[in-house]
Computed example of a mutant assay.
Amino acid sequence: MNIQQISAITSPTDYLTMNGRTLAYRTMGEGRPIILCHRFRGVMDLWDPAFLDALVGQGFQVIVFDYTGLGLSDGTPSYNPIDMAADPRDLIAGLGLSDVVLGGWSLGGMAAQAALMLYPERISHLALLGTTPPGDLVKLAEQLFYDIAGKESYSIEDITALFFEPKSEKSRAAAVRSQARIEARKQDLSPPVPLEFARPVLAHGPRSPAFPAEPVLQMLKTTQVPILHIAGDHDIIFPVENWYALNEVLPSVTLVTFPRSGHGPQHEHPQLAADIIASFVRNQ
C-alpha cells in the first residue's frame, strides 16, 4: 500500500525493540515527524482518526504508539511522566528521526514536557493538548473526572463528560461523531489498559500540584523551544486556567482555547486542531 493511502484506520502496527522491551507503533504520512503521546488509559486505537489524518494532510509523518507495558507494547508499565518520556526518546533514536515535533494529550502532555527537559536537542516543538503545567495550580480538577475515569468501560455519556462539553449541543454531537470514527477500526487493535494498573492513579482525587515536577517547570521558564497548548475552556481534569496563570512566566508557550469544549479539543475539532499545529510549527 502506498504510504500516502494509509489512514489512521488502516495503518499497520510495527514494532521497535530497544532497551529491553518492544514498542508497538504506527506511522502514517510523509514529511516532518510528529510523535503523539497518549492520555491516561489511552492506546493507539483511541486517537480520533480524523485528527491523525488531518495532520497527515498537513504534511506530517504521524507516529502513534503504545506506552511500555501497555497495549501491544511489552515491558514494565509506568504512569510516571519521567519514565514515560523514554518511549518517544527511543522511537526518535530507533526510527532515525530528526527535527521532531512531540505532541502529548493529557498525561501524555506531561510526558512530552518531561521529554523536553531530558533531551531538548531532539525536539523542535511541543504540541500539547489538554494537559497541565507542572507546579501549584490555581484551579483543581473536578471530582467528576475521578468518578468516571475508573469505570470498566465508557458509555457515550461518559465519553462526552470526560472529553467534550455536555452543556453544548454541538459538543455532544461532536462526541458521537468522534466515537464513531474511533470505532471504525476493527482489526489489529491494542488491548485496553488494565484497570488494576490504571485505577491507583485515581485514588488521590483532585490535588495540587497534579504534576509535581519542579525541574520541568524551571525548564519551561527558560526554554526557547516553541510550545503550543490547545485546550477547551471547560476541561474537567486539567483546567486551562492553570496555563493562563503562568502568563509572562513561560517565554515560549502559545495558548489556544476553544470555547464550549472539554478535555479532548482535538477530537471535537480535529481539522482545526491539526491546522493550528501545522501553522504553529511552520511559523514558530
Rank of each mutant, 00 (worst) to 15 (best):
A24V: 13
A210V: 08
R282Q: 10
F258N: 02
H38L: 11
A184R: 15
L16V: 10
E268F: 10
P166V: 12
P33C: 09
P206M: 09
E196K: 02
T223V: 09
D188L: 08
I6Q: 13
Q143Y: 06
V101T: 12
V249E: 11
I34F: 09
R207K: 11
P215Y: 14
A198D: 10
G150F: 08
P212A: 06
E121V: 10
F238I: 11
T222I: 03
L36G: 05
S279I: 03
V253T: 10
Q266K: 13
Q4D: 10
S208E: 04
L118A: 11
S261H: 09
H229C: 14
T13W: 06
A114H: 02
P12T: 12
F197S: 01
G108M: 02
H204N: 13
E142A: 09
A86P: 00
D147R: 04
L102M: 09
H125I: 05
A8N: 05
D147S: 11
F60H: 03
Y154A: 07
P200D: 04
L250H: 11
S11K: 14
Q143C: 09
V56Y: 04
T22K: 14
D87Q: 04
R32E: 02
L272I: 01
M84G: 00
E241G: 08
L217A: 14
G69E: 00
R199K: 15
Q179G: 05
P212T: 10
R32G: 01
M219Q: 15
T254C: 09
M110C: 08
A274N: 04
F280N: 03
G20H: 12
R207E: 07
P226Q: 01
K186R: 13
A93W: 02
I35T: 08
T10P: 07
D83C: 05
S171K: 08
E157G: 03
A231W: 05
Q218P: 05
F164G: 01
L202G: 02
E183T: 15
K221I: 08
E152G: 00
L16C: 02
L55W: 05
A8T: 07
D136H: 01
D45F: 05
I6V: 15
Q187H: 04
V256P: 02
D45V: 13
K221M: 13
Q179A: 12
Y79D: 05
G205V: 08
P226G: 14
F238R: 01
L272Y: 03
P133Q: 15
H263F: 07
I35E: 06
F51R: 05
I63F: 06
L97Q: 10
L128T: 09
L72C: 08
Q61L: 13
M28I: 14
L220E: 04
E165A: 14
N19W: 00
A86G: 09
A114L: 04
D136Q: 07
G109N: 05
G103H: 11
K139R: 13
L129Q: 13
K151I: 01
P259G: 11
Y146E: 09
M117P: 04
Y79K: 00
E183N: 15
A85D: 02
F238V: 10
A184L: 15
P226A: 13
A210D: 03
L102F: 04
I3K: 12
G108L: 01
G94A: 00
R32L: 12
M84F: 06
L246F: 14
F280R: 12
